[in-house]
Design a binder for these strands. Structure first.
Lengths: 217, 217
DNA sequence: GTCTATAAATGGATAGAC
DNA sequence: GTCTATCCATTTATAGAC
């Protein structure tokens, strides 16, 4: 038992350390939402958590390290929503599964444009996500691919076309109608367009030539 | 004639002034391409044109004014391509007209990511295009709308869905496969998907219910 | 772990001579 | 129109006391 007692103190310290890192990351997100992803300095973050700027270096080795933590945090958030959504989509018809996927991603992006910018655009000069952080990004895409395989869209090009379509709606919404829903409300139409052309349509197969049209003409 | 002589000198001066402004804008574009849209300072631009930083203020009142000139310049470039493309597309079948439009936009964006970022994303903190500059942006969209009307896609939502689709391809290409063609090569498939679902298909009308499906289910 | 002090660099912008 | 000199603000990051 001496062992556990001896280890508990460092454990507590570690937990406190991790909690402070969380606070810092959350504060940075708050500032990013308020003033834009690039609109804040380490001094600002420090002030928001009641510290002085140099103290932050106890927790993050650089501003880019903080960005990296935010990057991983954002993808962790997204992953936390992907799993339930995948469960919800399981067994559902393709149209519905696609709607769930699209709504999830579009909502996620539109509710926090700064997060969208950090996770899906390459807009911060000098920042490159670390390998562990980037691994989380791959995890999200893998889940996406799995869902697609389940509803019969195996081609990688189909996944790419899908991501382009959904990202395009988000990008246009944020750039040209921030706060509105001009592109947001086109999600059902986009899903319908995608499904009807990319999924072999059992009910409406009418074309005379071969299998229904997919990617790559 | 005394009048013309008296006016010629200021005219020359004005022309020289305009030429220098051009040089400065071009130098700024060069730096933006090399180091990213936000990766240069006024000092850098000055050095590139063989000046000192303060001299730039003779030509532009601020860095944002220079951004504004670049914004207008970029759209002028795009407009210069739109007119011939519209002429080329006139009378062509919808599929071909859409291909011309998509290729034009995608090529334009991919050949200069920094320009894409300035013209189509809102990523520079504090920069808002001036009204004259923004008017050029509207002109481009108007040309787009006109082409769509001509091939029978009148609904504004269809134009929005189209722009989302094309922007999405560009965005994904630049963010996830810079320099490659993983999304670039999906342009034909995207055009095909869009046309087949959004344009009343005279040759393949088979659905039993009403007119072929367009936007807004 | 947090602080003060400060390094070290950068960048936008202005004053005023030439 | 161009320059030098400089202001003024900002920011990331480090050193070292406590």
């Amino acid at each position: 038992m001496g062992v556990t007692e001896a280890k508990q103190r460092p454990d507590r310290r570690r937990a406190r350390h991790a909690a402070t890192k969380r606070e810092i990351v959350d504060a940075a997100w708050g500032l990013a939402r308020e003033r834009g992803l690039g609109g804040w300095s380490l001094r600002d973050v420090a002030e928001a958590v009641g510290m002085r700027a140099p103290s932050l270096y106890v927790y993050f080795a650089s501003k880019n390290a903080l960005f990296d933590a935010m990057f991983a945090d954002g993808y962790a958030d997204l992953l936390g929503r992907v799993d339930p959504a995948v469960a919800r989509a399981r067994g559902k018809p393709a149209e519905e599964a696609l709607r769930i996927a699209a709504d999830l991603f579009v909502d996620f992006c539109l509710e926090d444009p700064a997060r969208y910018q950090l996770l899906f655009l390459r807009t911060i000069p000098g920042f490159e996500p670390s390998e562990p952080a980037y691994a989380m990004a791959r995890q999200v895409l893998d889940a996406q691919v799995a869902v697609f395989a389940e509803i019969g869209m195996g081609a990688p090009e189909q996944v790419d076309l899908w991501t382009a379509l959904v990202v395009g709606l988000v990008s246009q919404q944020l750039s040209n109608d921030p706060g509105g829903d001009r592109w947001r409300r086109l999600v059902p139409a986009a899903v319908d367009m995608f499904r009807r052309t990319q999924l072999p349509d059992r009910a409406q197969r009418t074309s005379s030539r071969g299998p229904d049209p997919t990617i790559g003409e």
